[in-house]
Simulated assay, not measured.
Amino acid sequence: MTEEKMSSYQLGMIIISFFIGSALAINPAVIAKQDAWLAFLFGWGGGLILLWVAIKIAELHPKKSLVGILIDCFGRVLGKLIALVYGWYFIHLSAEVIRTYASYTTTVTYPETPLLFFSVSYSLVVIYSLKVGIETIGRISEVFVPFIILVVLFTFSASLSSMDISNFQPILSQGFLPPLTAGFTTMILPFGEFIIFLMVLPNLNHQNSFKKTSLLAYLIVGCILFIVVCRNLLVLGADMLARDIFPSHIVFRLIPGIDVAPLLDINLIMAGIVKTSICIYASAKLITEVFGLLNYRILLLPLTAFAVSLSMMVRGTVMEQVTVTMEIWPIYSIPFQIIIPLTLLLFSLFNRKNYNHNRT
């Protein structure tokens, strides 16, 4: 099978789309209320550290995927076992994304339509896109990212008359703990999920551009989401921002003179498709490498079907979904986003030091 390749620009657009993902619908920084902007900056900064860890690991293992890196560091048996655990995590993440977008659609747009209908509809698009190839996701992102930037800038400008600068006050009224806690959750959701791109890296045409592309994409997506957080806070105020499940939807509805809510729906659907596609692709490629299969495409349908089934089981009501997302998912993700990557980095640095010592 011909190896799929993508340009640095396409990878950057995919990273932006992936990070925007569910953060447009649910942003953990809002639990800090009037300090949501500060919590986001804390999370953004913490995510930059996790991004550096992932980039450094990739640099120490050129042209290798996460599976190859795990095998290099932990050996063939243990490395493959840990890889399979990551495969579960990627599928679980895809199920969470599917459920988030299906819940959003049935809550604010089509409340009479069954949840399963939207879950299956999203998944069919994901399967078709991946069947064509990962470069298709890159082309989708090339169109989507400029569109979302224009929408964010437009809605920010259109909401200026409804903004109240006093919604930023009082700053740190309850100390640093609430924004730090919300910042940690923001670091995990979505920035810590960058580890998944170690499964995409081998598809990059020019491997040496991975670092620059990732950092630039991270900077852009951070700016986009920071504008969204500030816009929602200035328009809705701290209490309503923290209480409402989908604050961006309320802001779009409050824009005077024009109904722009469908633009948010389009953005969320496109972002959800890209994020789910990357999760399914990463898990399929991971399983293919672990078991030595020839074609990852044979796994797309069963893995996506499993993700849809899991998405229908992982949550009850929308409120329960938000609660688990904010409180349980960050703790659950710590081994995958922090502990194992840091261990990989330490092992990689140690092995390189021993290699250089032996050469001398």
Results as ranks from 00 to 15, higher is better:
P111S: 09
L66T: 02
T109V: 12
Y128I: 11
D244N: 12
T105Q: 05
R76Q: 08
V143P: 03
I287K: 01
F210D: 07
Q321E: 11
G183A: 06
H92G: 02
F350R: 03
V30D: 01
L93S: 12
L93C: 15
S214C: 12
S94E: 08
N203F: 14
S214F: 04
L84H: 08
F246A: 03
A25T: 15
S22E: 06
S161K: 10
T213V: 13
I14W: 03
I224K: 07
F347I: 15
F18N: 02
I55G: 04
I14K: 07
F19L: 15
I98N: 01
Y110D: 02
G237W: 00
V120W: 01
Q337L: 15
I91D: 02
L38S: 00
S309L: 05
G43L: 02
G12I: 00
E327Q: 11
F144E: 01
L234V: 08
S103D: 15
N205I: 10
R243S: 04
E193L: 12
E4L: 13
L198Q: 14
I91H: 11
G183D: 10
T109A: 12
F191L: 11
R359A: 14
G133V: 11
I266S: 00
S119C: 08
S214R: 03
G47H: 09
N232K: 00
I91Y: 04
A217Q: 04
I69N: 00
V97L: 03
G21P: 09
E327Y: 13
M326G: 07
N351H: 13
L241K: 05
F184R: 07
I20V: 15
N351D: 14
W329L: 13
P190E: 05
F168W: 07
G292W: 08
S157G: 14
K285C: 06
I98T: 11
R99W: 09
G45V: 09
V251N: 04
G43K: 03
L70C: 00
L286T: 11
L204T: 13
V108R: 02
L78E: 12
A83K: 00
E193C: 10
V85C: 04
E96P: 03
V324A: 08
F40Q: 01
L81Y: 06
E112M: 08
K63T: 14
I273S: 10
E327S: 13
G183C: 08
I55Q: 05
I220S: 03
K212D: 07
F184W: 14
G43I: 12
Y355D: 01
L294W: 13
V221A: 09
F184H: 09
K33L: 11
K63D: 11
P262G: 06
E327D: 13
A282N: 00
K353H: 14
L342S: 13
I148Y: 02
M6F: 15
L241I: 12
